[in-house]
Design a protein around this nucleic acid. Sequence first.
DNA 1: GCGTCCATGTAAATGGTTACATGATTAT
DNA 2: ATAATCATGTAACCATTTACATGGACGC
Lengths: 184, 184
Amino acid sequence: METKALCLGLLTLGDSTGYEIKKALAEGPLSHFQFASFGTIYPALNQLEARGFVGSTAFTQNGRPDKKVYSITESGRAEFRRILKADPLADRIRSDHVFMLFFGDHMDTDHRREVRDGYLEYYRDAVDRLEKMDLSKALQGPRFAHQMGLTIYRAIIEFLESNRSEWFDEDEPESDTRDARTGT
Amino acid sequence: METKALCLGLLTLGDSTGYEIKKALAEGPLSHFQFASFGTIYPALNQLEARGFVGSTAFTQNGRPDKKVYSITESGRAEFRRILKADPLADRIRSDHVFMLFFGDHMDTDHRREVRDGYLEYYRDAVDRLEKMDLSKALQGPRFAHQMGLTIYRAIIEFLESNRSEWFDEDEPESDTRDARTGT
DNA sequence: GCGTCCATGTAAATGGTTACATGATTAT
DNA sequence: ATAATCATGTAACCATTTACATGGACGC
């Protein structure tokens, strides 16, 4: 299971609850390369505990729900080292936007532009979030993932911005459509 | 289901068998943004036929297995138009390589470099494949996806090549992963 | 003789999403 | 008032992977 490896890995960086793991994944530099929902995290942590890879301590809080803080065990660290030794699988980029634009010849120009603009906005937000991140206390690994994310997203934005063809922006150059060079 | 939309979409470009859909996905410009295996394609096509979105004709071949050529129906085209109108989901980049390098501080320099080099090779191959693709007869949509792929992969390659830090390319005698039992 | 291409499909297992259930606190 | 944050978990459903089953043609 993917999620188990993720949880184990994050626990190598320090003790944490399921809730915090979710947050770290959603807000940290790994957020754009991995994802997990509560529905997978909590069962994953339970399974990791059953196998002895993590231990947990329950805390009763006032005004807050109880929480269970997990910490990785020695056998958990060994397991994670084993995971890191495996051959990495091929990356998988699953893009609904590119899927749609692949079939964009079935759309009208307005709709294509709409999809492209939404795509641009999505990646501009992603870059904003990454730029605001504080990595002053981070290790080299998280920094690498952060830079990688910025690189990819900036490339996508630049591509989408420079790709102002008639396919997307047909009605823009309306200054001199007739009688340009050919005299039509 | 994702795969049903994929199959429908590809059938708008012309009649095809399940086998050919798999090939088109694996070798075409969409190959890096979507994926489907036989185990999902064949059931998807059967379901699409049951709903009247596609029709099929069986062909008996000599020296080859029989094949079933699917073609999209009018109601299938309408269904695909409906699919294209939906809001696109957020992209999902799932990278084992970045996951590993995120936790690269647990690795030694050799291992990190190994993972990085494998990553580089993977994307160099991807660019090679995209560059060899013949899109002279392709519509704008497939061209867009093709360019998008090239842009992203070239950015990744450039980043990995320029990122020659001591984290990857210096043999530091530093080793903080001593074995606790032996004390080495 | 061995691997790859053609070609379709099923079944078991795994992995993941979504909605549900609960409920006090704090910020807008 | 209303939403968000904190906090854990279950259950029903959906999607996907992997292995299996079958088998001739063709190149090396």
